[in-house]
Protein backbone atom coordinates (compact mmCIF):
# COMPACT_ATOMS: atom_id res chain seq x y z
CA UNK A 1 0.00 0.00 0.00
CA UNK A 2 1.35 3.43 -0.72
CA UNK A 3 1.18 6.70 1.10
CA UNK A 4 -1.64 7.94 -1.11
CA UNK A 5 -3.92 4.99 -0.39
CA UNK A 6 -4.33 6.09 3.17
CA UNK A 7 -6.82 8.69 2.07
CA UNK A 8 -8.79 6.46 -0.22
CA UNK A 9 -11.60 6.66 2.30
CA UNK A 10 -11.58 10.44 1.98
CA UNK A 11 -13.92 11.63 -0.64
CA UNK A 12 -13.40 13.38 -3.87
CA UNK A 13 -15.21 16.64 -4.28
CA UNK A 14 -17.76 15.02 -6.54
CA UNK A 15 -18.91 12.48 -4.00
CA UNK A 16 -18.91 15.14 -1.33
CA UNK A 17 -21.20 17.28 -3.45
CA UNK A 18 -23.77 14.54 -3.47
CA UNK A 19 -23.39 12.93 -0.11
CA UNK A 20 -20.77 14.58 2.04
CA UNK A 21 -19.95 17.57 4.18
CA UNK A 22 -17.13 19.69 5.40
CA UNK A 23 -16.06 18.18 8.72
CA UNK A 24 -13.79 19.68 11.36
CA UNK A 25 -10.92 18.54 13.57
CA UNK A 26 -11.61 20.95 16.45
CA UNK A 27 -8.37 20.39 18.34
CA UNK A 28 -6.52 22.18 15.52
CA UNK A 29 -8.87 25.17 15.54
CA UNK A 30 -8.19 28.52 17.23
CA UNK A 31 -11.44 30.19 16.07
CA UNK A 32 -9.54 32.73 13.98
CA UNK A 33 -12.53 33.04 11.67
CA UNK A 34 -10.80 32.78 8.28
CA UNK A 35 -13.31 30.05 7.29
CA UNK A 36 -16.41 32.09 8.11
CA UNK A 37 -14.83 35.23 6.65
CA UNK A 38 -14.27 33.53 3.30
CA UNK A 39 -17.52 31.57 3.01
CA UNK A 40 -19.31 32.91 -0.09
CA UNK A 41 -22.70 32.09 1.44
CA UNK A 42 -21.88 33.61 4.80
CA UNK A 43 -22.14 30.36 6.77
CA UNK A 44 -20.53 30.63 10.18
CA UNK A 45 -18.27 27.62 9.63
CA UNK A 46 -16.29 28.38 12.76
CA UNK A 47 -19.35 27.91 14.98
CA UNK A 48 -19.73 24.35 13.64
CA UNK A 49 -16.09 23.66 14.41
CA UNK A 50 -16.44 24.92 17.99
CA UNK A 51 -19.30 22.45 18.51
CA UNK A 52 -17.40 19.68 16.67
CA UNK A 53 -20.16 19.27 14.09
CA UNK A 54 -20.05 18.69 10.34
CA UNK A 55 -21.12 21.79 8.39
CA UNK A 56 -24.63 20.52 7.73
CA UNK A 57 -26.01 23.77 6.46
CA UNK A 58 -28.63 23.44 3.73
CA UNK A 59 -26.96 26.21 1.70
CA UNK A 60 -23.39 24.86 1.90
CA UNK A 61 -22.06 24.55 -1.66
CA UNK A 62 -19.11 22.41 -0.53
CA UNK A 63 -17.09 24.82 -2.64
CA UNK A 64 -14.05 24.13 -0.50
CA UNK A 65 -13.15 27.75 0.13
CA UNK A 66 -13.04 27.21 3.91
CA UNK A 67 -11.11 23.95 3.54
CA UNK A 68 -8.48 25.61 1.37
CA UNK A 69 -8.14 28.81 3.40
CA UNK A 70 -7.88 27.38 6.90
CA UNK A 71 -4.27 27.99 7.95
CA UNK A 72 -4.32 25.06 10.39
CA UNK A 73 -5.82 22.26 8.37
CA UNK A 74 -8.92 22.04 10.56
CA UNK A 75 -11.39 21.27 7.78
CA UNK A 76 -11.70 18.45 5.30
CA UNK A 77 -14.36 16.86 3.12
CA UNK A 78 -15.82 13.60 4.28
CA UNK A 79 -18.71 11.41 3.41
CA UNK A 80 -21.39 11.51 6.01
CA UNK A 81 -24.51 9.44 6.33
CA UNK A 82 -26.64 9.97 3.23
CA UNK A 83 -29.85 9.19 5.05
CA UNK A 84 -29.23 11.33 8.04
CA UNK A 85 -31.68 14.22 8.28
CA UNK A 86 -30.04 17.51 7.47
CA UNK A 87 -30.79 20.57 9.49
CA UNK A 88 -30.22 24.03 8.13
Amino acid sequence: MSFLNIFKSDSTRRTVLSEGHVVPEPSRCVQCGICSYNCPIGIDVRAYVWRNEAVKHSECLTCGECVARCPRGVLRFAQTDLFERRDS
Partner: peptide
Protein backbone atom coordinates in the same frame (compact mmCIF):
# COMPACT_ATOMS: atom_id res chain seq x y z
CA UNK B 1 -11.99 37.14 20.65
CA UNK B 2 -9.48 34.81 18.99
CA UNK B 3 -6.06 35.86 20.18
CA UNK B 4 -4.24 33.41 17.87
CA UNK B 5 -6.30 35.00 15.09
CA UNK B 6 -4.41 38.25 15.62
CA UNK B 7 -1.65 36.83 13.39
CA UNK B 8 -4.07 36.71 10.45
CA UNK B 9 -5.58 40.07 11.31
CA UNK B 10 -2.09 41.54 11.18
CA UNK B 11 -1.39 40.11 7.73
CA UNK B 12 -4.74 41.42 6.47
CA UNK B 13 -6.28 37.99 5.83
CA UNK B 14 -9.24 38.85 8.05
CA UNK B 15 -10.67 42.06 9.48
CA UNK B 16 -11.01 42.76 13.17
CA UNK B 17 -14.71 41.87 13.23
CA UNK B 18 -13.86 38.33 12.13
CA UNK B 19 -11.88 37.81 15.35
CA UNK B 20 -15.09 37.72 17.38
CA UNK B 21 -16.50 34.22 17.22
Amino acid sequence: YSRPGLAYYLTGEIDDKALYS
